[in-house]
Simulated scan of single mutants.
Amino acid sequence: MFTSIDYDKFRALRVTHVATRFEELIRDETNDTLTPEQLFLTAIDYALEQRRHSRIEKLIRQAKFPIPNASVAELDYREGRGITPVRMRRYAAHSWRADPTNLLIISPSGGGKSYLACAIGIAACLNEHTVTYARMDDLARRLIISRSDGIAHQRLLNELSDVDLLIIDDFLTVGIDSDAASDLFAVLANREHRLPTVIASQSGPAYWVEALPDRVAADSIVNRLANHSRTINLGRVDMRKIRDDTARANKEHWE
């Protein structure tokens, strides 16, 4: 069996997981019929899968989803929601780096757009894409604050420009100032034809043009978002009310 000196060597090579799993397999009498090569390759596969799980957990953590357990598998497909299992499975398996088409998720308040955006984003992380989730008001605040430090500001713009999938939720639910709009234009211009952006909003492109502070910048921003995009209209089903009513129906619920 391996000694502590051996494990120091494994750590230096960053293959500790391989060595640990290999030793476990050797000690398991049910593997006596397998060759050392087979056991070693099994240990390699195990270590690679562990690394993959660690990368995915890190991607989900870094994305900062407000609903970290959102799942495409748990979506509600009742009539009127404008989504189907087949369509959502396509989004769950989508290669975002290979397709820069944007996605617009439109619904009134309570329609479940934030949950859907998180579910799609988490599925992207499971496929090992980098994802950034941001609510529009928080993102605008971060952009404005970072302007006091030129290096930090440029770093933030670069991060938003280069992440595989950028998700902006509650888009223009509240207004943004001209500086934030200018930064948003820069990010979207950098992403155009390269990387996709998901927009979740209570309103559509026609309203966005009117709500943005500068008409020229507004036309450019909305043009980049809407003209090369897919759209999910979630309809008017109030999922928040349905969820709350379901919770109240539970015999353990109290108020």
Rank of each mutant, 00 (worst) to 15 (best):
H253T: 00
H94C: 08
Y133P: 11
E79A: 12
I26V: 10
T42E: 02
L13A: 10
L48C: 01
L41T: 01
D162T: 14
L13C: 04
L160W: 12
Y133A: 09
G110L: 06
A70Q: 03
K64L: 07
D214Q: 08
D179F: 15
L41C: 01
R248S: 11
S95P: 05
H129M: 11
L25I: 00
T173P: 03
R215P: 08
W96Y: 10
R248F: 11
I5Q: 15
L59Q: 02
R224I: 05
R224P: 02
L143Q: 10
I56F: 04
E255M: 02
I232T: 08
L157W: 07
D183A: 13
N127E: 07
V72H: 03
R89K: 11
R243V: 05
A247R: 08
L225T: 02
E74K: 07
P205E: 07
D76C: 00
I105M: 06
P68D: 03
D183Y: 12
D32F: 12
A134Q: 11
I199G: 10
H94I: 00
K241Y: 00
A181H: 07
V216E: 06
A189V: 05
D99L: 12
Q62Y: 02
L25A: 03
F2Y: 14
I167L: 10
K113C: 03
R240P: 05
Q62W: 02
G150S: 14
A70F: 01
I122W: 06
A12H: 06
L143S: 11
G80I: 04
